[in-house]
Every structure is written in C-alpha cells, then in structure tokens.
Computed example of a mutant assay.
Amino acid sequence: MASKTDVQAEEVQNTTGITPDSLGDTLKKAPELNASHVDIQDISGGCGASFAALIVSDAFQGKSALQRHRLVNGILKKEIAAVHAWTPKCLTSEQWEKEKAKMR
C-alpha cells in the first residue's frame, strides 16, 4: 500500500504534470541554456511540490547568480508557477569541475 505522501505526490504530478524528469527534459532541450548537466531532485518529502536543481551550463559564464536564476526561471516559467518551491544551483562547467573535485 502506498503511503499518504506517495499518493499526494502522484496527485500533484498527475495534476500539474511536473516531475523531476519533466523539469530536467525542459532544461536540457532549451537551446539558450545548452546545459551539459542537469540533476533535479524532489525535496518535498515525496509530495512533488518542491524541487532542487543542479544545472551546469557555459551560458552562465560571466553572469551573476541572479542573472543565472533568471535565465533558468524564464525557461521554466510555467512549471515554477505550479510548484511550491524551486531551488536552482547554476554553475559553469569550470565551477562544476571544481565542485566534483572537492567531493572526491
């Protein structure tokens, strides 16, 4: 039997159509972003209403954090309006390589 949060997550996803995969696909297909890596996590405890993202793109080069978020948020405007929380982390390829090196 599915837990209450599993049922709620399915209802949100069925109602909005928004899943980590759908968000990731939209970002990966955006030509203005040309993302080399996208990882979307459901951080809502299973209800499907809050997402965190790691997005790697050289389109972020020379942009402030605010400009990077605006670029991503513009691509996901409809989706973000339908979810409770959206937390993107936007890195260039160089920054991503440094982050990965720290994790080793």
Rank of each mutant, 00 (worst) to 15 (best):
T87K: 11
K77D: 13
K28L: 06
N34T: 07
V12Y: 06
A101Y: 03
K78A: 14
L71G: 12
T19N: 03
H69D: 13
V38W: 00
A85P: 07
Q13L: 01
K4R: 12
C47G: 04
L76R: 04
S44Y: 08
K89M: 05
Q61E: 14
R104I: 06
E11M: 14
A35V: 06
K102T: 12
T87W: 08
A82H: 06
A65G: 11
E79C: 08
K100F: 00
A9G: 15
V56C: 00
A82E: 13
Q13K: 15
L27A: 02
K98N: 10
K89V: 10
G74D: 08
F51R: 11
I55Q: 00
E11I: 13
E97A: 14
P31F: 01
L23I: 15
K28E: 01
G45K: 10
L71S: 08
I18Y: 02
R68F: 03
L23H: 02
A49D: 15
V38P: 00
G17V: 10
T5W: 06
I80M: 05
K28H: 01
S36L: 02
L71W: 08
P88Y: 03
A85C: 06
M103V: 12
G24R: 09
W86H: 06
S93Y: 00
A49N: 13
G62I: 10
S22Q: 02
C47M: 11
T16V: 07
S44L: 06
G46I: 09
V7E: 14
A49M: 12
D42S: 06
S44M: 09
K29D: 08
K102Q: 14
K102C: 03
W96Y: 15
M103T: 10
S50F: 05
Q8I: 14
F51V: 07
N14M: 14
L23M: 10
